[in-house]
Write a protein that binds this DNA or RNA. Structure first.
Length: 603
DNA sequence: ATACCTTTGAAGAGG
DNA sequence: CCTCTTCAAAGGTAT
């Protein structure tokens, strides 16, 4: 078991990650404010966000007013457009300050958590819970919600949910004490209502009491007799009467599940909160509400159902075989990363605040909010994500992300899809449409022919440089389509890169994380280049945004996460401009970031 | 029914 | 080592 300083220590494994966003949010906001001149649609959104953050009364009332007239565009554009609109409209509301300023999150105090020192819950940890309930508050738009709130002990917030998104979904047999259940609808399920809803606070510490059985019972299918007894955190994990707990273990896991049994309570809780009920004893697989756990793995469920259902008996032998095969290779989902956890948790809020339901739009908003989060706030999610990964590793020692590759589609399709949008980072080169064509000079000419490389490639900052130098320009965007969309999605131009940049800047206050170490390969000349890179013209940025595809508009090599953020996936044409509240748009401050980065490296 | 969109981050593959 | 790709969640939308 890794030692975690969940209590507030900075010794988070994900430090580097967090650092990247340390001040990004603030920076972004600041920048946005100062770059009014360059505001584009996306910027407007940013401003909206900013404004809304300070103006709680802002609203979604005026949504209709802001809605632009219908346009006749390609469905793609249309869709994007709508998403953008939605995001735009919702941004205002989303960024409202939570009812509990400074405590946007709620974390159920877990006195038993191995990650947190007993009785020394950090304030940040405690903040978790608050967020959740306030959400309910928001949600309270509906009578039901309010009523539910009235009854702080209302166990099944599920009924409160008016949307598909469960505002509160209690984990299945998850020990409420676990902090690991706090990060999402499921994980965040407050074992106890927040202080403001229920005065169940430890008089001594002032910290909300950890939920106790009596409180929990309503949330869990515990028999009255179980009240007062804390269910074994591994309850569902514990083999019952010699019966295999996980049907899939029969062939699914590369390693016998017993390993899982060694997982500590918190981990198991996390697991149970996240992992498919199909791995849980049947009677535990559903919420009291009968709602299947969202983490259910589709084909596993099918397997299971086929396995036990009478219907399966009717299926042909072939089907049975297929299913068996599937069974042998259960689809174990990837552990959620920090952002995913955040999204999971916040989605409900967003949905509640807005009428918006489109995930794409919501995600855009969440993405921005994510960046706006303080380092501490993000840290919580990073840590949770880390725990999830650890747990996942423990539970599925042999699992690899690779196992899920193409699980959602055929490889061909996937690849084709992505490649299709690959712009050539180097202007001098035509857009890459050929799958076999190298995307960068580096790959094209090789290391031994660097003289043939374009400047940006030499600097290893192709995309970014494209913008700054102009030598590598953004992908052909002569056709309005490209210009219109892409570029400035938050992740494309700004967020990721800038996050890193800002990271570096803010990093000055702290020791550089490993990830911040300047890459050895970075030569002085490179540094020079970096520092000299002029601010990318807005237009270029926009266009190059498309470049996100190739890893784009990032700081590139300096950023570890750069890679992760570069998502070719997003089709160039489909990139919404919405998010563009980017640093890229910000001339001055933005520019300085790379510089600082370089400086840092040099130093 | 399936894929897409959209976000960030993690991890794997390949150069 | 670096870049690119895929997947994770989610739900409306498009094909």
């Amino acid at each position: 078991m890794p030692q975690l300083n969940g209590g507030g220590g900075d010794d988070l494994g994900a430090n580097d990650e967090m650092i990247s966003f340390k001040d990004e949010g603030e920076q972004e906001e600041k920048i946005s404010e100062n770059s009014s001149a360059e505001r584009d649609l996306a910027d407007v959104k940013s401003s909206l966000v900013n404004e809304s953050e300070t103006n709680q009364n802002s609203s979604s009332d005026s949504e209709a007013e802001r809605r632009p007239p219908p346009r006749s565009e390609s469905f793609r554009d249309k869709t994007r457009e709508s998403l953008e609109e939605a995001a735009k409209r919702q941004d205002g509301g989303l960024f409202k300050s939570p009812p509990y300023p400074g405590y946007p999150f709620i974390m159920i105090p877990d006195l038993t958590s191995p990650y947190l020192p007993n009785g020394s819950l950090s304030p940040t940890a405690r903040t978790y819970l608050q967020m959740k309930w306030p959400l309910l508050d928001v949600h309270a738009g509906s009578l039901q919600s309010r009523q539910a709130l009235k009854d702080a002990r209302s166990p099944s917030p599920a009924h409160i949910v008016s949307n598909k998104v469960p505002v509160v979904q209690h984990p299945h047999h998850v020990h409420p004490l676990t902090p690991l259940i706090t990060y999402s609808n499921e994980h965040f399920t407050p074992g106890n209502p927040p202080p403001h809803l229920q005065a169940d606070v430890d008089p001594k510490t002032g910290i909300p009491r950890p939920p106790h059985p009596s409180d929990i019972s309503p949330y869990y299918p515990l028999s009255p007799g179980t009240v007062g007894q804390i269910p074994h955190p591994l309850g569902w994990l514990v083999p019952q009467q010699g019966q295999p707990v996980y049907p899939i273990t029969t062939g699914g896991f590369r390693h016998p599940y017993p390993t899982a049994l060694t997982v500590n309570a918190s981990m198991s809780s996390l697991f149970s909160s996240r992992f498919p009920p199909h791995m849980v004893p049947p009677h535990h697989s559903l919420h009291t509400t009968g709602i299947p756990h969202p983490a259910i793995v589709t084909h596993n469920v099918k397997q299971e159902s086929s396995h036990s259902d009478i219907g399966s008996l009717n299926s042909s032998k072939q089907d049975a075989k297929k299913e068996e095969e599937k069974k042998k290779q259960p689809h174990i989902k990837k552990p959620l990363n920090a952002f995913m956890l955040y999204m999971k948790e916040m989605r409900a809020k967003v949905v509640a605040e807005c009428t918006l339901k489109e995930s794409a739009a919501i995600n855009q908003i969440l993405g921005r909010r994510w960046h706006a989060l303080s380092r501490e706030e993000q840290a919580k999610y990073y840590e949770l994500a880390r725990k999830e990964r650890q747990l996942h590793m423990q539970l599925y020692p042999g699992w690899s992300a690779r196992d899920n590759y193409y699980s959602t589609g055929s490889p061909k399709k996937r690849k084709a899809k992505h490649r299709e949008y690959f712009p050539n980072p180097c202007l001098s080169l035509p857009p890459i449409t050929d799958l076999s064509a190298p995307k960068k000079c580096r790959a094209r000419f090789g290391l031994d022919q660097q003289n043939n490389w374009c400047g940006p490639c030499r600097e290893k900052k192709c995309i970014r440089y494209i913008q700054g130098e102009g030598s590598c320009a953004s992908p052909p965007s002569s056709d309005g389509s490209l210009l219109e969309s892409p570029p400035s999605s938050p992740s494309m131009v700004s967020p990721s890169p800038s996050s890193k940049e800002s990271k570096l800047q803010t990093e000055q206050m702290q020791p550089l994380s490993l990830t911040m170490k300047p890459p050895p390969l970075l030569s002085s000349s490179q540094h020079h280049h970096l520092s000299m890179a002029p601010p990318p013209p807005l237009a270029l940025l926009d266009n190059s945004g498309a470049g996100k595809t190739s890893g784009s508009a990032h700081n590139g090599p300096l950023d570890p996460s750069d890679v992760s953020s570069s998502r070719p996936t997003g089709s160039v044409s489909s990139r919404p401009t919405s998010a563009c509240h980017s640093h890229s748009l910000l001339p001055s401050s933005t520019m300085t970031q790379p510089l600082s980065l370089v400086t840092k490296s040099i130093d």
